[in-house]
């Protein structure tokens, strides 16, 4: 199948097994620039695996993933790493901030990995921290900030490279609903303002409600609800 017209990132017929368990069994996906797509489904349905495949963290056993006209599964690990550094951003549920680095250093980290100088990287980091209303935490270490603040720092970090696709895996999973919603608001606002696509893995309907549309993953198969309806 050719990728849907205008799609930034699309996947077709993805299969991935971890040992005897089939995590993905013919999943499909596509997303346009500036679009927020929620990936929903019960626990263990393969949501996270789909995200990992789409982001090039995991290579599927079979199937194709096309990003911006390039075939992801044909790339080497180094190429995919480079792509993740330059074009993708990531927010996870928890455990993603380096505890030794200060918040601003954490946010600047992706830029530094790309070779940006420390000073410049931290300046850019601060801009994003302001947008996410956490610029007063710059000197603090992750252990010294609250969960919601930490997650906002993580969002700032995911956006600091101006990614074209933002992958968020249960970004509010560890937060209460008030903090969770604030993080979702800031995340989707920021993504829309930069025209970044957001792949949002969640099992919470209230978080998924921040998306433009949703796909449901069940037993390794995906279902794009827009096409059904």
């Amino acid at each position: 199948m050719t990728p849907p017209a205008g799609s930034l990132l699309s996947a077709d017929q993805l299969r991935k097994a971890y040992g005897p368990t089939l995590a993905l069994d013919g999943a499909e996906f596509s997303i346009h620039p500036g679009e927020v797509v929620a990936v929903m489904g019960p626990s263990g349905s393969g949501k996270s695996t789909l995200l990992h495949c789409l982001a090039g963290i995991v290579t599927p056993d079979s199937g194709t993933i096309t990003y911006n006209g390039r075939e992801l599964s044909a790339m080497s690990d180094a190429q995919r790493s480079a792509l993740r550094r330059s074009d993708f951003g990531f927010v996870f549920q928890f455990g993603q901030l380096v505890p030794e680095l200060t918040c601003v250093e954490n946010v600047a980290l992706p830029l530094r990995l790309n070779g940006t100088s420390r000073k410049e990287a931290e300046r850019a980091a601060l801009t994003w921290m302001e947008r996410l209303e956490v610029d007063d935490l710059r000197k603090k270490r992750p252990g010294e900030v609250s969960g919601g603040q930490g997650q906002r720092v993580a969002v700032a970090r995911s956006l600091v490279t101006n990614p074209r696709v933002l992958f968020a895996d249960e970004p509010t999973g560890a937060l209460d609903s008030l903090n969770g919603e604030r993080v979702m608001e800031l995340l989707t606002d920021a993504a829309r303002s930069t025209n970044a696509a957001v792949v949002l893995v969640t099992h919470e309907a209230r978080v998924a409600a921040y998306s433009d549309r949703e796909i449901v993953v069940r037993d390794g198969k995906s279902r794009d609800m827009e096409r059904v309806v």
Binding site: A205, R206, A208, A209, Y210, E214, M225, V228, V229
Partner: peptide, 14 residues
């Protein structure tokens, strides 16, 4: 699934 989609649509509007 259809019902969920409909619910989500409402939730998005809200």
């Amino acid at each position: 699934d259809t019902q969920r989609s409909e619910h989500l649509r409402s939730m998005r509007i809200l």
